[in-house]
Nucleic acid binder design. Structure first.
Lengths: 338, 338
DNA sequence: TTGAAAGCGCTAACAC
DNA sequence: GTGTTAGCGCTTTCAA
């Protein structure tokens, strides 16, 4: 089969002008239906594949939406991207994805590369960026969406929630269950900004209840794995054996912590309560089920997509969509009453 | 900041021709170092962002590598994409990702859309495609890689392994442990071809040992979740309470099955052995740790990337890279000897 | 509904 | 090391 069959070749074979072939490939253009069918058949027979690169240049439209996420290997961000892709692909838009590895310097590089592709809009995870990244986004001339966070000084649109505030509800719940010696397991404070916000929220919520906050365990650089969660739990139990409850920065580390309790013969929640964040599937399947926070990651993606579609039609508007994660109370933090 | 600052504007501001600006943006081009630095500074000050769409058209190079995966929300495929992206991005190549939802009709549409973007190479997961998808790939005139499988009739290059063969080692191990009444939990036979291959391999391996294969549990359309694994395990235990071991199509369903045993008060491996596939992190963290098969998903991605880099320099060669997954024996299938 | 001419913003090719 | 000319494969624009 031929490489580089062009519109011109299809046009010649179909006995029409290139412009008519061009129209035949656009669903909204006016071409006689029989002409279109004939052209598409000829194109298929010749093995013609439409060349977007040329169309993009001439029409100054790429139908790309650029997205940065910290890591592809994270069920929450993957869900967001899945929701985003699904909505956008129905509108003929394609996601162009880049990873930042939880590093704003890498984010800056990713943003620069992505903007060169001339996307219609760009979505970044989180609200902390290098000054240059911020400048690039501000000057891009396209809708910018910051997701998964509520930046104090947004660049453009926002679809997110307060990571810190989710910890209030969590600590309130634990205190209501009678726990007072509560620990937090999380990553390095500065790298994963959403995790750091949760830690900050945890500390604030403990203070609001007049509780001391002397059990903050560092589990290393993000993302915190199950194994790191288990190791951190081991250190916590060694240092503070009288801990009554532990909040983990994610369900993955929480599950790791849970297994460490299993290995040590500690009952959850009988001897110690464990909670996570993210409403990963495992939280709902493991034994006991894990108390967690559901940030509705797929909805975030869908909301971002809908916001972009709206913003492309209504330039100038700035939309802030504040979402409300839900505390999901499960067996791992509930005092049994039997 | 200005939208649509072009090379021409940078050239004028820097007092050089556009061609010199063009050269300044290519690391290999010959420009006087001082000239380049001056140009890049002027460009940054003007807020110029290089336009790939124009460069791509003129140079007939996009630096895209197209990739289809069944689902983004799968740690194994995510690892493959991560390995692929990392190696390719070092060479200035960017991954353009599309999802198929384990559906070859959707794969065909994804391939068509991806080829319109004129990628330098295309990677598809698996070796089963619609006739038209196959024709598109064959006629694309770029390196084609089928990954995660060993197709009987490859389109181009291959980086994969025999999913069926992995089950031989698994069944051999279980039989060596003394198990004979062994079940398989998997998805619908036709959708997830890799899962179907594992089931086929399981059946063949059982036959090779002279064992009957009357415990094949259908857990629904792929991907099989933890929850579906748990439900399938429930059905298995209800129908065949004397089952001694169960092989699950993935670690996620295996973990679900494990939790179902926990809920029913069955000891693993004391009362029943459980094994999975994929070497997901959970297999190495849960209690007991799960016997599984490690297909080295990140290596698959890295191998694919290296193969593509080689193929771009050596057209005409056809490379078949056959990988060997490793059986990882863990606590969940080992008869305790204490 | 269809066609002809012009050009999107870069870079290949060649000249100096 | 730098500049000039032409053109990548489409779509915009205008005309019929």
């Amino acid at each position: 089969m031929q490489r580089s069959v062009k519109m011109k070749d299809v046009a010649r074979a179909a006995g029409v002008s290139v412009m008519t072939v061009s129209r035949a490939f656009r669903k909204d253009a006016s071409v006689r239906p029989e002409t279109r069918d004939a052209i598409l058949k000829v194109a298929e027979d010749l093995g013609y594949v439409f060349d977007s690169t040329a169309a993009n240049l001439r029409s100054q439209k790429t139908d790309f939406v650029a997205v940065t996420i910290p890591s592809i290997n994270n069920a929450n961000f993957a869900e967001t991207v899945a929701g985003l892709s699904e909505v956008l692909s129905n509108e003929g838009l394609q996601v162009l994805l880049a990873y930042t590895n939880y590093d704003i310097a890498q984010e800056e590089r990713a943003i620069e590369q992505l903007l060169r592709r001339r996307p219609e809009a760009i979505v970044v995870t989180g609200g902390k960026h290098t000054p240059r990244a911020r400048r690039l986004l501000e000057g891009a001339g396209i809708p910018v969406v910051e997701a998964w966070d509520l930046p104090a000084d947004p660049i453009g649109h926002v679809v997110g929630f307060s990571n810190a505030a989710t910890m209030e509800a969590m600590v309130d719940h634990l205190v209501a269950q009678g726990y007072t010696r509560i620990a937090f397991i999380g990553g390095d404070a500065d790298a994963d900004t959403r995790g750091a916000d949760r830690r900050r929220g945890f500390i604030a919520a403990m203070a609001a209840h007049g509780l001391t906050c002397d059990r903050l365990i560092e589990a290393g650089p993000p993302p915190i794995s199950m194994r790191e969660g288990a190791e951190a739990m081991g250190r916590l139990l060694d240092m503070h054996p009288d801990t009554q409850a532990v909040v983990c920065v994610s369900d993955l580390s929480a599950f790791g912590a849970l297994t460490e309790c299993q290995r040590r013969g500690l009952g959850v929640p009988r001897d110690i309560a464990v909670a996570g964040f993210g409403a990963y599937e495992i939280a709902n399947v493991c034994v006991p089920t894990l108390t967690t926070v559901d940030p509705f990651p797929r909805s975030i993606g869908e909301e971002v997509a809908n916001l972009i579609l709206h913003a492309l039609d209504h330039p100038g508007e700035r939309l802030i969509r504040k979402l409300s994660p839900r505390l999901v109370i499960a067996a791992s933090t509930q005092v049994r009453s039997d």
